[in-house]
Design a protein around this nucleic acid. Sequence first.
DNA 1: CAAATTATGTCGGCCGGCCGACTGGCTACT
DNA 2: AGTAGCCAGTCGGCCGGCCGACATAATTTG
Lengths: 242, 242
Amino acid sequence: MKRKGLSVVLKTKKVDLHSALARGAWYAGLDADTQARMEASGRVRNVRRAEVFIKQGDEASGLYALMDGQARAQTTAPSGKTALLSVLHPGDFFAFIAAADGRPHTMDHVASVDSVIFMLPYPMVREIFAADPKLYVYLIDPQMVLVRRLVEYLTTTIRLSPMQRLAERLLEFSRSHYFPEGEHMPLLGLSQELLASAVLCTRQTTNELLGELQTRGLIKSEYGRIDILDADGLRKIHQSNN
Amino acid sequence: MKRKGLSVVLKTKKVDLHSALARGAWYAGLDADTQARMEASGRVRNVRRAEVFIKQGDEASGLYALMDGQARAQTTAPSGKTALLSVLHPGDFFAFIAAADGRPHTMDHVASVDSVIFMLPYPMVREIFAADPKLYVYLIDPQMVLVRRLVEYLTTTIRLSPMQRLAERLLEFSRSHYFPEGEHMPLLGLSQELLASAVLCTRQTTNELLGELQTRGLIKSEYGRIDILDADGLRKIHQSNN
DNA sequence: CAAATTATGTCGGCCGGCCGACTGGCTACT
DNA sequence: AGTAGCCAGTCGGCCGGCCGACATAATTTG
């Protein structure tokens, strides 16, 4: 029943592509000419649920955006354990790190559900962005935001209780990075085990905490799907100093 | 008895300034012309033990380097608790984040002992680095490294036992970021409480773990000073999957 | 030099989250 | 359709690290 959308988006004309990308603040902030060049040089591609379309260690392949569906960024440690880092929503651009410095990708990117992605190949990234210093700075900017977020995360979130961290992560993952005013979208195709890796506790504990949040009516948790029902309630939990 | 060095370094001539800065790989990688411009435009300044010479939230003030002594980067949470992020050694450049994007400083920087710092004021950073895209990329590069390190830290180090984390942090803090081949220097003026904030456990636990490391002959821990005696031993602890 | 302040060392009790284990539910495979 | 494999839910026992408390040592202050 959810099999709609995909083919529709696939036969995108310029207009659809443009409006899909421009949902994100980063892309919307580019000048029209650069946008046009990106749209002309980029490729649209369908990916299936659970498909790993960027692999950790791969050579820099380009700059990506999610057009439809949901995806996540995660790393796999040498030990084999994977850790969830972020969840991507339509309009989000990602893989900035490799796109900016040309070194290998640091994270896996996996489709959480059948999705449509946009990719600007790395040679085109260089051609379009490296030429103009102003544009290059713009390409770098999300990195700076990321650094600051990571530092903040390391110094505050780490020290919270598992319940507070869970509330914080749910709020964070359920909306777009660069559209923080947006509504909270449901998390799709995300196992409790992976969520636990982001909350920094065990699957069992995460399961119990999710149960409590659901009992309190703040979320709805079902198989492979978590809905945020009361974002303010979650925010209160996150901020309670207890 | 440690009162040497300072006045000596204070009356730096160009030669001394240059060789002090060039100990770090980042600076050494710059072309001679840029180095000369930085040395001509920068200021050398003495700071006293415990002096907070960069405050979190301050406007971007420039790019810094430590010439002599030891310093640390830390953040203070709204709750008042401070967390140690990194330790700086002679030749290290720092405050790249604010220097690159011009936004306020994210961390406090505190002298661990009486030290000498070099500062290139922010307007000069812009004048020298923003003009040439190649140079700008070079200024950004440490950020990229930092992002990759933070991600790695978040996904691996976090999951270790306190003892493993302590061993890892001691190794990390005791040598320069950009000169990772160097020897391990003693940590100075660092309270166990602050160290505990980086190890993510309580002061008491940290104290006990330090005691064990000392008993095993891997470190020497005294008031306000920790010497690394057996780096390989610490590495073994860090890597033991136990 | 005495007093105040801050850092280090140590203990016992407690509890939150981990671990192993098992069941039942959902999905994917052929 | 049926079966294999992964995911969600739940429980009891255990233990590592937290907490509060206190004594001592080093440092700073006046």
